[in-house]
Design a protein around this nucleic acid. Structure first.
Lengths: 191, 191
DNA sequence: GTCTATACCGAGATAGAC
DNA sequence: GTCTATCTCGGTATAGAC
C-alpha cells in the first residue's frame, strides 16, 4: 500500500502542485481511504518528501548511481548520461513537473529538495562538465547553461506533455532518441 | 481595484497554480477583501482568465503586436523578436510560471489558454520560422524545436528563478543579453 | 493495518447593510 | 463599490472500533 500511495502521490503532486494536490485524491487514486496517508506517513508534507525521495532514487538508478565521466572516452560517457537523462525525463515526467511546480516561489518544499537532491547533483554535473571541457571538443558553456539546456530542452517538453500534445499532436516513436541527439550536438558543438 | 486584483492574481496563480492559489490570498495581496473578487469577476475561474488575457496582451505589446519577420533582413528581425521574448520572460516570469503549472495535466484551463492564446502564436511562429529558414543561414530545426528552445532556454530559467537563485546565486546584470545572444546563436547555427 | 466518524479549518461564493 | 456575516463544501488530521 505504501508503494501505491507513493505512485498516486507523484501523479497528483505532479499534476496539481503541492498546495493544489489533495490527500483525498491521492488516496482515491491508490485505492485507499484518506486516513491511510496519515497512518503510513506522518503528514501530507512527509508524503511529499517520501515521494520525491523515491523519484530521485529512480533517477539515480537509471543514470547508474551518478554519471561516471571521470574515466576515459569522456565525451562518450557524457553522451550516454544525456541519453539516459532524456529517457528518464520522458518515462518519468513527474520529476520535472514537481520541480517546476515548486520552483516558482520560495517555500519549505523548495529549500528541502534543493539542499537534499538538487545541489549535490549540480555539484557532480559541474565537476563532470569541467572534465569534459578540459578534454576539449565541447561548447564554451558554463555548468549553469549546461544544466539549463538539459532541463529546458531535454526534460521540459515531457513535463509539459499535455500542452505539447495539444499543440503538436502525438509524440513520435523516436522522439527520445532525436531529442538526445540534438542535445548532445548542442553541448558538443554549441553556439 | 480591478488592476490591483489582476496583478495580485498573477503573482498568486504563478506561485501556487490555479488549484493551489486562494482568492483570499489574492484579495489580501491586492489590499481588498475576498468578496471583491466575486464582485469584479464572476468567479475564480473568470479571474484567472482575465489575468491570463492581460498577461498575453502585455506580451504582444512587448513584441510589437506580432513578430514582423516578413519584410527584409529576416534574420535581424527574428533576432529582435528573440531578444524581446527573453526580456519579457525575465520581466514577467508569471506567464511561463502559469503555463508550466497548467501544462502538467489536461484541464479546462489548459484547453482554454491553448485555443485562445498558444495555438495562434504557434501558427505565427511557424510561418515566420519557415520564412527565416528559406532565407537560409539558420539551423535545421522544425518549428516545434524552435518553440522548445525559446521556452526551455529563453524563458524557463526566469520562471524557475527562485530555484535558480538558490543554485547559482544572484542573477548577473547582463543575464538577459547573454541569454538572448546564446539563443540566437543556437537558432542560427544550430546543432 | 484498515475502516468509519468526526473535529477543525480554510476554501469559494452569496446576501444584505452601508 | 465596499464592507461584514455567513453558507456550504472540501481540505488535513485524529479517535477509536474492528
Amino acid at each position: 500500500m505504501v508503494d501505491q500511495l507513493l505512485d498516486a502521490a507523484l501523479i497528483e503532486f505532479a499534476a496539481h502542485g503541492y498546495a493544489g494536490a489533495s490527500t483525498r485524491a491521492i488516496a482515491e487514486r491508490a485505492g485507499a481511504h484518506q486516513p491511510q496517508i496519515n497512518y503510513h506517513f506522518r503528514s501530507k508534507e512527509a508524503l511529499w518528501q517520501a515521494a520525491v525521495d523515491r523519484l530521485f532514487a529512480e533517477l539515480d538508478a537509471e543514470l547508474g548511481a551518478t554519471p561516471e565521466v571521470l574515466g576515459e572516452d569522456l565525451l562518450g560517457r557524457f553522451a550516454s548520461f544525456v541519453r539516459a537523462f532524456v529517457g528518464f525525463s520522458a518515462r518519468r515526467p513527474e520529476l520535472h513537473r514537481i520541480m517546476n511546480q515548486e520552483s516558482t516561489a520560495d517555500s519549505p518544499q523548495l529549500a528541502w529538495v534543493v539542499s537534499r537532491h538538487i545541489a549535490p547533483r549540480i555539484e557532480v554535473l559541474s565537476v563532470a562538465w569541467s572534465a569534459v571541457r578540459e578534454a576539449g571538443a565541447v561548447a564554451d558553456l558554463d555548468p549553469a547553461e549546461v544544466w539549463e539546456l538539459l532541463i529546458g530542452f531535454g526534460a521540459l517538453p515531457y513535463a509539459n506533455a499535455p500542452l505539447r500534445r495539444q499543440l503538436f499532436g502525438p509524440v513520435r516513436a523516436d522522439d527520445v532518441d532525436r531529442r538526445a541527439a540534438r542535445l548532445i550536438a548542442l553541448l558538443a558543438a554549441g553556439p
